[in-house]
Design a binder for these strands. Sequence first.
DNA 1: ATTTAAGACTTGTAATAACAACTGCATATA
DNA 2: TATATGCAGTTGTTATTACAAGTCTTAAAT
Lengths: 244, 244
Amino acid sequence: MPLPSAIKRPLHVVISEKLKQQIDAGRYVPGDRLPSEFDLGSLFEVSRTTVRHAIANLIQQGIVTTQQGKGIFVCDRQKISFSMSNPLMHFDIALQQQGYAASIKSLQYQLVPAPPEIALQLQLNKANPRVYRQEKIIYANESAIALEIDYFPQKLGQQLAEPLQQGFTYSTLTNHGILLQAAKVSLESIPTTYELSEYLEAPLGMPILVFNYLAYTDKRQPAICGKTLSRSDWTCYTSEFEMS
Amino acid sequence: MPLPSAIKRPLHVVISEKLKQQIDAGRYVPGDRLPSEFDLGSLFEVSRTTVRHAIANLIQQGIVTTQQGKGIFVCDRQKISFSMSNPLMHFDIALQQQGYAASIKSLQYQLVPAPPEIALQLQLNKANPRVYRQEKIIYANESAIALEIDYFPQKLGQQLAEPLQQGFTYSTLTNHGILLQAAKVSLESIPTTYELSEYLEAPLGMPILVFNYLAYTDKRQPAICGKTLSRSDWTCYTSEFEMS
DNA sequence: ATTTAAGACTTGTAATAACAACTGCATATA
DNA sequence: TATATGCAGTTGTTATTACAAGTCTTAAAT
């Protein structure tokens, strides 16, 4: 048997690696336009099929983006960091502190039958519990960076219907005297589905950070719950701990 | 001008959505094999090109995987959850509690010049600081779920060279009397690069959760730092907070 | 001066073709 | 029995071709 020679890599992988190296080396800097698919095909002496496959690889890795009719552009984005604790989730303040204009657009604010897991989380024991469901998009400087889905108990949702549709959730609650004392949170990541990719103007499959939370006003009294789905190329979450 | 009719969606999108619906509806359950690309082409009356594009979409969304020579299979995986605090990062214990066999494979354990940001984090003030760099893979039931990269100060890394190469970081430290008192952490998500996809046997572009940490033994004495890159289809992080 | 139109250039979609590489099974061979 | 061999079926790679659709500039028409 012959010695195992170099592992054969597909052409499209070789080409995307070459392009990645050139980008890493500074040959192309963020914002630059790469040569067109046609020109890249000539440069590397491969078909446009292969070039497109290579570019698709780079898109998946978040290295470049494409714009129909314009070209292929090198990405770059420094992430906005959100503190998971202390204070919990003041998105607007965090954004402003980092130099972004923060705004929201409420897509939905509706009284709906509570999904089972939401009723469980909020400890709604009535027969057919209903909750206000809000869906809103969070913008940093005109760019959609997150989709937030919140569930409010019926009473609260009715009281604060107006302000909640115009401002950030936590700030609104705070301003109306509702102080959150504790929260259970979890963080996971999923690839964008079509629906999400349309909301967040993100490429299909891009990683999304999902911040699930259940916040308490009192020791054992859950007040609101929901999740924030944010573009992972724009956001990260930080925290500090002390062990007792 | 005519009324805006239904937005035209590409064929490959239409087909991947149809397949997704069938999967969601239970027509195919996790583990099932879909019809072959050829058969799907016949079913939907499109070319294999389009079928492959549709399948690529579903792969990117983490809905199916392919195996050369075998077929297209529906994914499913319940996530393993790790607590970010209290106790911090006992990966092995968390895994065992959730019914997985936990093990590691050390890929690298080497004294190297400290990268600038690491030297800064660990407060190494000497001229040319050196640290032990460990790279290891974390397995749950034979499946690689995470790549951990740790940096240890020279003295500590030398003392615990043996046990650190065989066991989980935090358990090893605890067992040798090194108690961590506090930590600064951050969580972000990135798409897999080629290197990562090989380590974690994950498809290119799959979301990866990056858990960065800097742990202190004493109030202001940083002890170790590093990061854990875990497959987002296997893992999530949880935490609880109380506001004072 | 403003608007419109045309064209060049770009990425996006889609079909077709051919072969490589892997899997699994049935069959032939030692 | 155990090991090859070959074949059918599968996904992976790559080239070629054609047209659709978005962007931008330039030139013509109003």
